[in-house]
Amino acid sequence: MLGVFLVAGTWQWQRGLEKDAMLAAQARTIQEREPVALATAREHPERLEWAAGTGRFPDVAPVYLDNQRNDGRQGVRVYRVFEVDDADATQLLVELGWLPLPADRGLPVLPDLAPGEHPVRGLLMPPPSAGLSLGEALQRQPDGSLLALRVVPAEIAAALGLSVDLAPRVLRLDPALDIGFERDLDVLANTLPPEKHRGYAVQWFGLAAATLVITLVLSFRRRRQ
């Protein structure tokens, strides 16, 4: 029991440090805003970078990430496949923003995107944290769209029948762009902040300390008897 509590506490503490580093990288990236090419989405899967480029949204069904809260409201984040104007025709998922769900959980009807070339920019980053990977990641809807419990680019590419793999990173569009829906650049949306992880770590370490004290007290009493 002592070992389990120590491992759990150490893991939670480490997660807090990782998220601290992610928030620091986000602040630095947004402040500097030195754009890299969108084609680099295939490289450095864990890196946060400001990216910009041009391309088009092919006629591919959208992806809705389920269980996304915004100001206490339940909704989905909308992703569309974006094909970059480069020699390799790089494709990646672009987050267009958040939309609320009605009481019957009917998926929203999206307006058509303007055809042709689109300039885009935003935060190039790993997909949202998936948490525990339980159950099927994707559910195909009657209109051909995908309802996702987690964003796994390789699985989404296969489900959409794409001829090329999607980049491992996704693009969160700059909220200033006149495209898409309500959105921000919060890299920890719908996940625990660092201070929560540290709080859980303290609890696990407290349980470890309590286990150690109880074990010593019981052992001492047994020896006396």
Rank of each mutant, 00 (worst) to 15 (best):
W13R: 05
T10V: 08
G9Y: 00
L17C: 08
P45Q: 09
I30G: 05
W13S: 07
L17E: 12
E18D: 13
L48P: 09
W11F: 11
Q31Y: 06
A24Q: 15
V7D: 01
W11M: 09
D20E: 14
R42K: 10
A25P: 08
P35S: 04
A51M: 06
A37Y: 01
K19S: 08
R33I: 07
E46A: 10
W13N: 01
V36A: 03
I30L: 15
V36K: 00
Q14K: 07
H44K: 11
W11V: 14
Q14I: 05
P45E: 07
Q14P: 04
R15V: 06
W13P: 04
E32A: 14
A37G: 12
A8N: 09
K19I: 05
E34W: 09
A51F: 01
E46G: 11
R28D: 13
Q14W: 12
W13H: 07
A51T: 10
A8M: 12
E49C: 06
I30Q: 09
L48K: 03
I30M: 10
L48S: 05
H44W: 04
W50M: 05
W13A: 14
V7S: 04
Q12N: 10
R28Q: 15
I30E: 01
A21R: 15
E43R: 11
A41Y: 00
A41Q: 02
E32T: 15
A39V: 02
W50T: 09
E46V: 10
A25K: 02
A8Q: 06
R15N: 14
R33D: 09
E49G: 09
L23D: 06
Q31G: 13
T40F: 00
I30A: 00
Q26R: 15
E43F: 06
W11Y: 13
L38Y: 03
R15D: 11
L48M: 05
T29N: 05
H44R: 14
V36I: 11
G9F: 00
K19D: 04
A51K: 00
P45M: 04
E18Y: 06
V36D: 03
L48F: 07
V7T: 07
V7E: 03
A37K: 08
A25N: 08
Q14N: 15
F5K: 03
R28L: 13
E43L: 10
L38V: 08
T10D: 03
K19W: 04
E32C: 02
R42I: 04
Q31R: 10
H44G: 02
L17P: 05
V36C: 04
E46Q: 13
R42V: 05
A24T: 15
W50L: 05
A25F: 09
A41T: 01
L48Q: 04
G16T: 08
Q12M: 07
T10S: 11
H44C: 03
A41P: 00
L48R: 03
R33Y: 09
Q26A: 15
L38C: 08
Q26Y: 06
M22T: 15
K19A: 02
A39T: 08
G16H: 00
R47W: 09
T40E: 02
A27M: 11
Q12H: 06
G16E: 02
R28V: 08
F5C: 08
A51I: 06
T10P: 00
P45W: 03
E46D: 15
